[in-house]
Amino acid sequence: MKRNVLLFGLIIGVILCANMIIMVNMMYSNTDFKGNDVVGYAAMIILFSLIFFGVRNYKNKQLGGYISFGNALKMGSLIALVGSTLYVVVWLFYYYLFVPDFIDVYTEYVLTTCAPEDLQAKTAQLADFKEMYKNPLFVILITYSEILPVGLLVALVSALLLKRMPKPNLD
């Protein structure tokens, strides 16, 4: 189980990290960059769908085609945790070493896309966010909160689809 968790978790994590770095670089290099949250979360769901294949691979090759809901959920959650942890660690290094002004760039981007009537409230909200982002623990928590719930949701769906218990022998 450990091998599958690490293999699939690291594959997910590496692709998520590459996507994150590309998107941040696009935001920095293109002032007209228009991000799309729907596309971003759709990409996460597609990447996290590898959880299904990781659990299915383990079920078929190691468990003879049977896995309980609990074991499938546990394995899927661990894969999501490995991928998300890699994403968080890379973001911490990337943020602190390469884009320490990210919050300023992000704030500018958000404020230029904000409706004029919401500008004052959004400015205050982003100022609070910038202050909280000075704390590395907050950075870790907020980064996990943007990625891990998607992985856990996919792990839950995968466990529901893959659970299969052997039929009891009634003889």
Rank of each mutant, 00 (worst) to 15 (best):
I11Y: 04
L16V: 09
L16D: 01
C17I: 13
C17Y: 05
C17L: 00
N19R: 07
M20Y: 10
I21D: 09
M23F: 09
V24H: 07
N25D: 02
N25V: 05
M26T: 11
M27D: 01
Y28K: 09
S29F: 07
N30L: 00
T31F: 01
T31I: 12
G35D: 10
D37G: 13
V39L: 15
Y41V: 09
A42L: 15
A43S: 13
M44S: 13
I46Q: 01
L47V: 07
F48G: 07
S49L: 13
S49E: 10
F53K: 00
F53L: 11
G54E: 06
G54A: 12
R56A: 15
R56Q: 15
N57I: 04
N57W: 12
Y58G: 01
K61L: 14
Y66D: 03
S68L: 11
F69C: 01
G70L: 06
N71A: 12
L73A: 14
L73C: 08
M75P: 03
S77E: 02
S77Q: 02
V82N: 05
V82D: 02
V82P: 03
T85L: 12
T85H: 07
Y87Q: 05
F93V: 06
Y95C: 01
P100I: 10
P100A: 03
F102Q: 03
I103R: 03
T107Y: 00
T107A: 12
T107V: 04
Y109H: 15
T112E: 15
T113G: 10
C114F: 02
D118P: 06
A121K: 13
T123M: 06
Q125R: 01
A127L: 03
A127G: 08
E131Y: 01
K134F: 02
N135G: 06
L137N: 00
F138Q: 02
F138E: 01
V139M: 05
I140R: 04
T143W: 05
Y144L: 10
S145C: 09
E146D: 06
G151E: 07
G151Y: 11
L152Q: 10
V154L: 11
A155W: 10
